[in-house]
Write a protein that binds this DNA or RNA. Structure first.
Lengths: 205, 205
DNA sequence: GAAGCTAATTCAAGTGACTTGACAAGAAAT
DNA sequence: ATTTCTTGTCAAGTCACTTGAATTAGCTTC
């Protein structure tokens, strides 16, 4: 029996099976998108077809365990996280070092960058918040533009932050605010890892 | 002369023309996306081709004034907004130690607390952001409730954060997120100053 | 162990949103 | 008037993702 959820269940169970499938799919999709991967890319990396992924993400089928395992491996999460119950009331506090870490796809989102998720995914959040860890020499890929506002605080290291036409050299403790419409990107200019606490409005992904 | 920007200019101007075109395009695109319209839909509403819109949004061509007028009309903005210089440019970066510091009224807001303003007060900000410095033994006054969402990160020290019915002990590096409607307050439980990087959506959401 | 089922997986074709390039129609400059 | 712009259209192309039919793998059950 390879699948996650048996279908021997009948009647009332069917529905909850369906929604849990969908939740799994949603999380997988989110993980993928956060990393800037396309279905094709992920399929290649996890050695399966795009089609399969599409169906899994949309809750049409449930992946086999080996399959799911390969997926979370590529995505850098763990299976547990995919099934964690949504954090109503709990999940207010997240401990240092216990937050999910996501490596970005170097080609699409930037070189040597990983995101530490501060706000877990669940629909209805007004804010998006990650700690960007940038290895020495790392930099974000091409400028990004979207609606909203960005605010951040440099926890450690030194970066050049480019916003609009200007470049700013930031060191630990410096902060910034700007309109997301302005194209922006950054580069680690120190010898060590730089970390930025970064918050922005709507998660218009 | 139908276009926005003349091309008689030569040399150095060309570049700025190009970027201003791109900015216009970006804003148009943003307006469209915010409204959830596709190129096709907008094209139909503004009576032009998708292709044209695509080019305008990508700064490949500049729309004629009548065209632009129809666009902003459908999008419900005005032409002026499309060209407004974004206020930003200045006031993007705030240096550690150079941010305005505000001592809270002990009676009304809390004991031994000062706020370091990260986002300057000015209308039109979507976010509110302060670093809360809490002296040893200090605590916020009675619980606060408002609409929106809060996210924070403990920069240094140790605090007890009370949200709803629960209390959490936080140390440096821990983070939290919660709905602003939940009553919340905090207390410094360490021997030294505690600092929290705190972001919230303004009540006007 | 073969027969039969069910559900995961694939391949190939389809769709929707956007882009690009070749060309037509107007204005502007000569 | 003719040449040279540039906006605008049409049709073809691309990219990311979906859908559907066909195949395959993994159990059950005889």
């Amino acid at each position: 029996m390879n699948k996650i959820d048996t279908h021997n269940s009948k009647g009332g169970d069917e529905r909850s099976t369906a929604t849990s499938l969908l939740r799994l799919g949603t999380r997988l999709k989110l993980s993928r998108q956060t990393r800037g991967l396309t279905l094709k890319a992920l399929a290649a990396a996890a050695n399966c077809s795009e089609s399969l992924l599409s169906k899994v993400e949309n809750g049409k089928i449930s992946p086999s365990l080996p399959m799911l395992h390969r997926l979370v491996e590529v995505l850098g999460t763990n299976i547990g996280w995919m099934f964690e119950e949504s954090d109503g009331e709990e999940g207010i506090v997240f401990r240092a070092g216990a937050r999910p870490l996501i490596a970005l796809d170097p080609l699409r989102r930037g070189e040597g960058i990983s995101l530490e998720r501060v706000i877990p995914y669940s629909p209805g959040h007004l804010l998006q918040c990650n700690i960007h860890h940038i290895e020495a020499g790392g930099e974000s890929a091409g400028p990004i533009q979207h609606a909203g506002e960005e605010v951040g605080y440099l926890l450690e290291g030194a970066i050049d932050l480019m916003v609009g036409e200007k470049t700013f050299r930031l060191t630990a403790g410096d902060s910034f605010v700007f309109n997301s419409e302005l194209p922006h990107w950054y580069r680690n200019v120190g010898d060590e890892r730089a970390s930025i606490f970064w918050v922005n409005t709507p998660a218009t992904f």
